[in-house]
Design a protein around this nucleic acid. Structure first.
Lengths: 278, 278
DNA sequence: CCTTGACTCTCCCCTTACTGGATAGGTTAC
DNA sequence: GTAACCTATCCAGTAAGGGGAGAGTCAAGG
């Protein structure tokens, strides 16, 4: 019989941990002095402790280990659990790799001294849900006249909503369709979308649609005038490529803070690119 | 200005988390109603929130992020932190891979239906410290006479300790030197070691030495008679190979529960192999 | 027999990054 | 006016222990 300190030295497991395992029902001492409460462990229990540690090293939680060891350890159950654990560990590993890659990409960009946008624009990944909107779609003949075209389109969708008794809600969303290089020679197809409440029907110029959900989009925030927005696009597109993603759908801009003819330096715009791995 | 719920929807960050970040000093609302306590966020704050999330996605703790963002974010500091983080993440990744490999090895062995020893012998990795012992070294002519040889050697070391006024402490340790196949033709060189307290000098047959420490040893526990010990050796050696390790020193046996001429079924022996990766 | 130092006991708080719940007050739409 | 919804604060809990306080135990030396 070993006292807890001796058993701790034998097993290289801390006294605190042994007491914790006792309390958790994982490893009850072979004997407990009824008067002093002293725990006494037998050498045989080292085998059980080793088993616990081995399972823990495979990533099982103490709760799972306790379930296995106490309620009859059928190897089949263990097999099933470890299969699940294997899948889970692979997912964790993938996440860990992605995380490391993000850090490495950042460091590489830093060493190339392109830190100006990097610190300005933080790119994050998140999901977006579907959004029901009224959309006015159109084509801007070129980049110069994009702003005018969008103003006109947003006017149309807002007018339609209010005219039909609906109410505008949330911020305007610009969708950029068809950004592939071969088709943009005949202009930029864009959609001006507004969320609303109430009943709104399609009109000749506007349609009620659902902007699709995406499980993973890359997002960044641009502060200030639209004139500098290309910096944000540079940053986000570079990030997407460097981290091993690919654009997988039309990108959007959310005008989070925007008032036509207001102070452009106060504008806040979120840029979203649907992406997928590799 | 957005109320916390709206800001939560915009950012895909839960209300609870926003309140938590407020309390942590990471993201104070742009404005707080003095009477109601309502938090109001500005669209500009989305940029800061994105920055927080981006840093979090690279594995920084909220405390580190707060330090960076509040006490002036010098890109150089961030660079230094991320370098450290990179190393840390690489270590984590290696650990994760090893963990996954342990699970995979287990599953493979299971499918080969060699589960009998597998469940009997759990192999774990741990460090061992140096141990100061009195050692009697000798050579057993063959496996048959190993037991007799060891008995003699242990008698010698124990006798020397007690004769010199020292006291035996802890369990006996058998060290197996020179297990390479080319040299074991002339017998097995073994050492019988006992820890002790007090002053003990070298004698003609025994020496006071330090058993070296090892940062990583594979260990398993064998319960019962020495006659079945080969099963434990099978299990541990197979584990060592399958998990991509290699034996890197003389193995030891610790007689955790042992009394000569006692009930052999009660013996408990720990087998230790110093190992290294690949 | 007494003391001293090393061990051990229980109990409580702390860690991370939140989540959930209870209860109370505020806002808004019908 | 009231119901539905939103927000606030406070408390508790998570996994796997670590740290420490205060009190009791044990073994050896004098």
């Amino acid at each position: 019989m070993f006292k807890i300190g001796d058993f701790s030295k034998l097993s290289m497991v801390s006294v605190k941990t042994l007491r914790f395992y006792d309390e958790a029902g994982l490893l009850k001492p072979a004997q407990v002095d009824k008067f002093t409460g002293y725990r006494y462990y037998s050498a045989q229990q080292l085998a059980r402790l080793n088993c616990i540690l081995a399972l823990k090293d495979m990533g099982l939680s103490l709760e799972q280990i306790a379930a296995l060891l106490n309620k009859g350890l059928s190897p089949t159950d263990l097999h099933a659990m470890l299969r699940l654990k294997q899948v889970e560990l692979e997912a964790q590993l993938a996440e860990g790799r992605a995380r490391l890659e993000r850090v490495t990409v950042w460091l590489n960009q830093f060493e190339q001294e392109e830190l100006s946008n990097m610190n300005e624009y933080s790119v994050i990944i998140k999901p977006v849900a579907t959004i029901r909107v009224n959309e006015a779609r159109g084509v801007a003949p070129d980049w110069e006249r994009l702003g005018l075209t969008l103003n006109k389109l947003f006017d149309e969708t807002c007018d339609q909503i209010t005219k039909q008794g609906g109410q505008l809600v949330g911020s305007g969303i610009t969708v950029y369709y068809d950004q592939s290089p071969d088709t943009n020679s005949d202009g930029l197809e864009v959609g001006a979308c507004m969320s609303f409440t109430g009943q709104v029907q399609d009109s000749t110029t506007t349609k009620v649609i659902e902007l699709p959900a995406f499980p993973t989009i890359a997002s960044t925030i641009h502060n200030g005038t639209f004139a500098n927005m290309h910096l944000a696009y540079q940053a986000i597109l570079k990030w997407i490529e460097a981290n091993g993603y690919r654009v997988s759908g039309p990108n959007r801009e959310l005008n989070l803070e925007y008032q036509r003819d207001g102070d452009q330096n106060k504008y806040v715009t979120e840029i979203q690119f649907p992406i997928e791995k590799v």
